[in-house]
Computed example of a mutant assay.
Amino acid sequence: MEAPLIRRLSRFLAALALTAATTIVGVTTTAGAAHADGCYTWGRMLSEGMSGEDVRQLQIRVSGYPGYGAVLGTDGAYGPATRSAVIRFQQAYGLPADGIAGPQTFNKIYALQDDDCTTVNFSYAEFNDCNSDWSGGAVSASTARANARLSMWKLQAMRHALGDQQIIVTSAFRSYACNSAVGGSSTSRHLYGDAVDLGAGPHSLCRLAQQARYHGFNEILGPGYPGHNDHTHVANKSTRTWSAPNCGI
């Protein structure tokens, strides 16, 4: 069987499975079944109370919609926080906001991601100008890439909230060598791949710092914080540190 035919068959089977799941739970949709995707394809509808790797993959994609000051966990358990994040995602894109991830929600996610699992407006290269293999940091290369990908989804949500205008990334993952070369802190989140420095562009540094509070970043450092008058720093860490005094944060 030729490869194109195999791909078409795979897409048909994935769509058929999701359509069947939609019928079983008794939910109707006018968008039809979700199509297969080059990065990740969901095979069932997801709702509160469910769990699994497919839930975790969904949580990554809606991690930028946790609400003000919150951070959405990516534990694979579809709880109230995940449902609320899905609702915010659905509202942001004009979808029926029922907190259930079905074909319309998945199709929008597919439209927002590339086949390498980056988002349509950010790339791995943009998040790593240190080396090509993501090695030499505080975590494994695969973990650093996964952390960067999570940050991309948060920034994708932030970008949409800011009118779908460009967000300029000036620095993200750093190996220990790269971090030392730029004078970074020895405990920098850049070493983990989950920190991103943003430059001024369509939006001021203060506007970026203020908006980041809604998109799942526990660390926000900006103008007025020592060493951060020329960029806004956002990161994913376990405890909250927000400080951009010149921006009212």
Rank of each mutant, 00 (worst) to 15 (best):
H190G: 14
F173H: 13
R174T: 05
T119M: 05
A138K: 13
V182Y: 13
L221T: 05
A85V: 07
L13D: 07
Q165Y: 10
G248Y: 09
Q166I: 00
N236D: 11
G67H: 04
A195W: 08
T119D: 02
N121G: 10
G222K: 00
S51K: 15
Y192C: 00
I6A: 02
Q57R: 15
T232A: 05
D54N: 08
W42L: 02
A92N: 01
Y78R: 05
D230C: 02
R189K: 03
L16G: 00
T29A: 13
A181V: 01
P226Q: 05
L198Y: 04
G73R: 08
T29H: 07
D133Y: 03
G69T: 08
R145C: 04
S135F: 02
Y65K: 06
T82I: 08
L5A: 15
A111M: 12
G163F: 13
I168C: 07
F89M: 15
M158D: 03
G184L: 01
E53W: 06
G52C: 07
S123F: 14
R174H: 14
P202L: 01
G224D: 07
Q91M: 06
V55C: 13
I220Q: 01
H160L: 05
W242Y: 10
D194I: 01
G43F: 08
N131F: 01
M1F: 14
V86I: 08
G248F: 11
Y65E: 04
L112H: 05
R149W: 03
H35A: 15
L18A: 02
L13K: 08
D115A: 13
T23P: 02
F89K: 12
A157C: 08
F12P: 00
P66G: 13
E219D: 03
M45L: 14
L162Y: 00
R11F: 09
C178Y: 03
T187V: 01
S140L: 03
I167Y: 01
D115E: 12
A157N: 03
D116P: 15
T232W: 00
I60Y: 13
G43Y: 15
Y110W: 09
G52Y: 09
Q113E: 15
Q211A: 11
S151C: 10
A235H: 01
V196M: 14
H35G: 14
A125Q: 14
L72G: 06
A146V: 08
A85K: 09
S142Q: 12
S180N: 11
W153G: 10
R7Y: 13
G49D: 06
S135L: 04
I167K: 00
V55D: 05
C130S: 13
V55R: 12
H203M: 01
H228R: 01
S140V: 07
N179K: 03
D98C: 04
G137A: 08
N229T: 09
A244M: 08
Q165F: 04
L150T: 14
S171Y: 02
P96E: 02
F89H: 02
W242K: 11
M45C: 07
I24T: 12
G222D: 00
T30N: 06
D75G: 15
W242T: 07
L13N: 01
T241C: 10
R207L: 02
